[in-house]
Design a protein around this nucleic acid. Sequence first.
RNA 1: GCGCCCGUAGCUCAGCAGGACAGAGCAGCGGACUUCUAAUCCGCGGGUCGCAGGUUCGAAUCCUGCCGGGCGCGCCA
Length: 548
Amino acid sequence: MASRSGLEERVAGALRDAVRDAYGIKLDGVHVERPNHAHGDFATNVALANARAFRRNPREVAQGIAEALDAPFLESVEVAGPGFINFRLSPDALGEELEELLMAREGYGRRELSGAPILLEYVSVNPTGPMTVAHGRHAAYGDSLARILGAAGRKVSREYYFNDGGNQIRLLGESVAVRYAELFDREWPVPDAESLYRGEYIREIAEDLKERDGDKHLLTSPEEALPEIIAFATDWCMAGIKETIARARASFDSYFNEKSLYESGAIEEIIEKLKEDGHAYESEGALWLASSRFGDDKDRVLIKSDGSYTYVAPDIAYHRDKWRRGFATAVDILGADHVGFEARLRAGLVALGLPQDFLDVELVRLVKLLRGGEQVKVSKRAGTFVTLDELLDEVGVDAARYFYVRSSHRTEMNFDLAVAVKQSDENPVYYVQYAHARIASIFRRAGLNPAEIRDVPSGEFAHEERALLLELFDLPRVIEGAASRREVHPLPTYLETLATRFHRFYTVHQVLVDDEELRARRLALCAATKNVLGIGLGLLGVEAPDRM
RNA sequence: GCGCCCGUAGCUCAGCAGGACAGAGCAGCGGACUUCUAAUCCGCGGGUCGCAGGUUCGAAUCCUGCCGGGCGCGCCA
């Protein structure tokens, strides 16, 4: 399946031939677009874009191309404006493409898997608490992107990277330990009570720990007991995160623990290699990566003067591991607060001999939380955050996921909690889903299975039908465009336009009419629309309901 | 100060690998259900595309400089 519809491909091919015949010039790329209805079904700017090469004025060139065109599937060809060529497709050509769409079923717009495998890393939050509304955006964007990349023929593997051994984790353990001790009216000694986590979930973990182990951890020294408490707390958090992820309909092929990099010696290995190649040096008691040689602003510390690693070292080792596992591209979806991360990580990887374009970072902008227009200060440590579960409880998975990916991940997002429920009612996802449900209703009434519709009797298409058809045929292009730009939001935009085309068609034309051919043609159109809506919503992890 | 990102209708956002008149939803106003689901449709009002230059036959889209906002600039992750 191509990234353009068959029709578009045919138009482009005919244009190439016409240019060759009329001017003896071989064009490699021909731009075909969908103009305003008034102009036609398709249009091209080849005459304008190449006017210079032709050494003639664009309109004249367009005229020449139009005359040389040999394309029986076109009903009309017109030169317009400064030199555009507009096309109208013949009803038969539209009908044929519609049949192909029906034949392809859920495979429409989907390409065969090929090319080098991509490792998509997303979410990757450390198990120190529940997922927040901000993480939800990462989950929705990352999961949808993975689905879109897959549909566009890219081999994608999804991975979650986490660390359950760092500083934050120790803090989590101490926070739980303090609450745990409180349950027995005891005190737990901590170096810095100020920095402890205060969320309600800390108490829950402590209570669960008490339920499982009783007062066992108070019978030994805190130093001895803490590791076990930490393990309990991180397992508790990780289990919750996995539940939330599943609930949000996201998924992963693998989970990668930072700890394994220490255990396997992968970190030492890259450090040795960097030293050997002269890309790491010692200074002020620390080991530095000469990252400024590879495009970073400055050099970065790999090993601190106290002998421990900075996060840079394991990150480089981790990404080198991705490379060793045979991935040709590592796409990292990170929060906007990780700007700068890309340059230093890439520097390390290039220093190790990996290609410049191996790493591809997509920064997801922050989610700004509002409540009735007022900004809500969010702090995980202070416990003043809104969990993803709470959001899902309130607005549902469909509305939440759709809302998350409706705008570009590169734009800051305002999320007003006060109108969250209202927002869910007004969420355009229902507009799209409703189109799907309406079609399902028609087929119920007709007693037919839309998946079995195959044939399209020939005949004219009304204006609204033609508009709907052309929109349907755009799906392959939308999928490929979204995949190559690593964007998800073109899908919602597309689906809303498609739903509009359908609702308009539905309002103007009765589907279940007595005229059998007309009825069959309209049913085919409905079946195709239902199919494409289903595909599109599926790529967003949103349900396509048969009833609403 | 430096780097990355953003600035389009009252609000939330599309459009930006240059193209034909700048779009949608929400909010406002006015219409349309004895016919396949009115969670729908139709109409009206509403925009110096942050500002100023430049490139081009053509710029919301590309380049430069400003202005405004976000994020980052640790031997934190």
